[in-house]
Every structure is written in C-alpha cells, then in structure tokens.
Amino acid sequence: MKRLVTTALLMAAATAHAQKFDGLADTPQMGWNSWNKFGCDINEQLIRDTADAMVKNGMRDAGYRYVNIDDCWHGKRDENGNIQPDPQRFPSGIKALADYVHARGLKLGIYSDAGNTTCGHKPASRGREYQDARTYAAWGVDYLKYDWCDTEGLSAKGAYTTMRDALRAAGRPILFSMCEWGDNKPWEWAQDVSHSWRTTGDITACWDCELSHGSWTQFGVLNIMDKTAALRKYAGPGHWNDMDMLEVGNGLTPDEERAHFSIWAMMTSPLISGNDLRSMSAETLKILTNRNVIAVNQDKLGVQALRRIAQGDLEMWIKPLDGGDWAVMFLNRGERTLDYRHDWQKYALADDLSKHEADLKKTRFRWTDLWNGAGGDTAKPLDVKLKPHSVLMLRLKAQG
C-alpha cells in the first residue's frame, strides 16, 4: 500500500509540473488537414496520395510539414480499451501510415475530442486521455487536433490540460492544437497548455458571411479576421491564435484566395491547407507556395498584425518583422474597386504592443509587392488600386 501511495504521489507531482513540448511551434505550424474538403470521406490512400503530392508539388519545400487526418478515422476500442483505426478505411493501421509520411520528410497528425464522442460521433478521449496519448506516441503521431464536441459538464481548461499532461507523459513530442472554437476564451489561459487554439467556430469558403446550423455557426474570411484582430496580444512564438484551416482552393475567387492567404500570414495564424492537393489548379498552388508571403507568416518575431487604418472598406494592416523590416497590407473589404493614395509620411509604422516603430519622415524604406514583385519606396506617396475582395501586400526594408 505504501508503494502505491508513493507512486500515486510521484505521478501527481509529475502531472502538476507537466508542460507542453517546446520548440514545435516557434513559428506558426504549416501543413494540410482533411476536413474542409473531405469531411468523413477519408482513407489511408488519400493520406498517402496527399503526402506524395505535398512533396511533388513543392509544398514541403515551401515549409508545409504536417499531413493531418481529421475526424472519422476511428474504429472501435479493443478489449483493453485501446483505440483502433477503422479497418476498412485504414487497413494498414496508423503506424504504417506514419512511417510512410515520415519517409517523405513529413509529419503525421491525428484528431480526437475532449468529450465522449467526436463531432463525427466516433469514440473520443474523455476519461482515456493517457491511454490515447500513449497510443498516438506508439504510432509515431506528431500532431494532435483536439476538438470540443459532446463535452457537457466539462471544464475546458481542465480537459485540455489533462490531454497536455497525457501527451507529455507519453514522451513523444506532439504538437497540441486546441479546437475549442473560442467558447471559453482559451487565449487567456492556454499559453502553457497548447501550441495553438482556435479563436472562432469553423471557417467556410466565403468572403463575408455567417452560416448558422442551429447550435453552431460557420464564418467567412473577414468574419474570422475581425474576431481575431483584438486577440493579437496573446499570440507569439509557441502559442498562436488559430483562425482555422485555409479555404484556398475550395471555391473562393483568385483575388479572395490571395487576400485570405495574406490575412492569415499577416495575423500569424497556422497555415493549414484544406483543399485537395492532388488536383488543385496551378493558380491555387502558386498562392499556397508563395514563399515571400509565407516568410511573413514564419517571421521569428511572431507579432500578429495591427489594423492601422480603417476607412470604410479600405484597411491598412502593419506587422513588424525581424531585422527591422515591416509587412504592410492594404485590404479592400467591399464590392467596388478602390483608388487610394497613401502618404507614407503621414502614418508612422508604430506598434506600441510589440514596441516596434519606424518614422518614415526620417527613414526611407524600399517596398516590394509580395504578389507581383513590383517595387518602389516610401519617398513618395503610394497609389493603390484595389479590386473588390483583394489585397496589396508589401514588404518594407530600410535603406541604409
């Protein structure tokens, strides 16, 4: 009995000091997730083909690393309570799939839920957190997306902290992505619990809309941007505001796709593509692999952009970058083309939250358009023509 009590106390002490794994999301995570395009219609061949496509099309080399299986991979639990993959959809098992993905220089992600069942009504992890975490580690999983369905009576902070501790106890470094939809203000308490947390309900492929499903709501690109804008002080290396998976390639216009990708990059959201990588257009691939825009997202300062100007449908967002550079984005939210002249010397680049500032009256910056490569400098005003639902995204570098 004394040995049992001692063991229990040691386990309790270890749990009390457990932390998420460091170094897994010093910059926002990048990858792919099955849900937006495929929902529950998934199988191991899709995951293998997606990993192959990510290598072949250059996404891996552009920084995308995680191939994430979302809901509905689950089969039943075995006689010992260990979760098993669906034998029809994943006959080779998750370990073999992880080995396949790892052999291509990529990482495998998986999905579970803090409640009794997942959003797709599959077995979830409530009460089996440590058992499931050990299973994921044994399979070679690198990423866990953890949802919030069927959680009546649960404390969000308690449930997510339990899974964090379980992942730590399992011993394998696994990036922990909370999908709690912002219901319990995770940005206020999850910095030491997870590597990212969702700020809103699910995204949908529209520019500016809300789609109610009764008990839950989906949001368009601008809606998620607006809801996340006020949370910038909570984002930083290792702990990110997650604005949900990207809808690039899922039905937005090309201008909307470029704007969507630019906004997510500026706001340091994880870049998790949600389209079919096996059959996307060359234009969609070009957007997803724009290394200049990706570099803004992956900047090691990790400062979420500030909305500097809001004048009707026109907005200007600024983001300080490592080495004294700045990213600047002009956004047209509206339905008509906007002509705008921006006087650089009238609006200082200043962010009192991150304590970065540049006086353009004293320092000249050279700017580069991150979508078409055009250039100029801040010595003269910038004439901007923005089509509806589009952006101009620039990187500014001080001239010596």
Rank of each mutant, 00 (worst) to 15 (best):
N80T: 01
Q84A: 04
P87M: 02
I69M: 12
D70W: 02
F90T: 07
A98K: 03
F90H: 08
I69C: 12
L97W: 08
V67G: 05
P91V: 04
F90M: 09
A96R: 15
N80A: 05
F90N: 10
I83L: 15
L97F: 07
P91D: 04
I83G: 11
Y100H: 08
G75H: 12
S92P: 06
K95S: 12
P85G: 10
N82A: 13
D71Q: 05
G81K: 14
G75F: 14
R77V: 02
F90G: 07
N80Y: 06
Q88T: 11
E79L: 09
D86Q: 10
D86R: 05
G75N: 11
N82F: 10
I94D: 00
G93H: 08
G75T: 14
N82P: 02
A98F: 00
K95Q: 14
P91H: 04
V67R: 03
A96K: 15
N68E: 10
H74P: 00
N82V: 15
I83K: 08
N68V: 10
V67I: 15
R77A: 00
P87K: 12
G93E: 04
D70Q: 05
R89P: 06
K76P: 01
G75M: 10
N80K: 15
V101W: 03
D78R: 05
D78C: 00
D86K: 05
P91A: 03
S92R: 13
G93N: 10
K76L: 09
F90Y: 12
P87T: 12
G93P: 06
G75S: 11
G81D: 11
G75I: 14
G93F: 04
C72T: 08
D71P: 07
N80W: 04
N68F: 00
F90V: 13
I94K: 00
D86L: 06
S92N: 14
N80M: 03
G81A: 08
E79M: 09
A98H: 02
I69A: 09
C72P: 13
K95G: 00
E79N: 12
H74F: 03
P87A: 10
Q88I: 09
A98Y: 01
D99Q: 13
G81I: 08
I69T: 14
V101F: 06
L97A: 08
Y100W: 01
D99S: 06
Q84C: 06
D86F: 05
I94P: 01
S92D: 13
D71H: 06
K76H: 11
I83E: 14
P91W: 04
D78N: 15
A96I: 05
C72R: 13
R77I: 01
D86M: 05
R77G: 03
D71E: 12
V101H: 13
Q88M: 09
I83C: 08
E79Q: 15
D99C: 04
Q88N: 13
I94E: 02
I69L: 11
D70M: 01
D70P: 02
D86I: 06
E79S: 14
C72S: 14
G93K: 11
G93Y: 05
N80I: 00
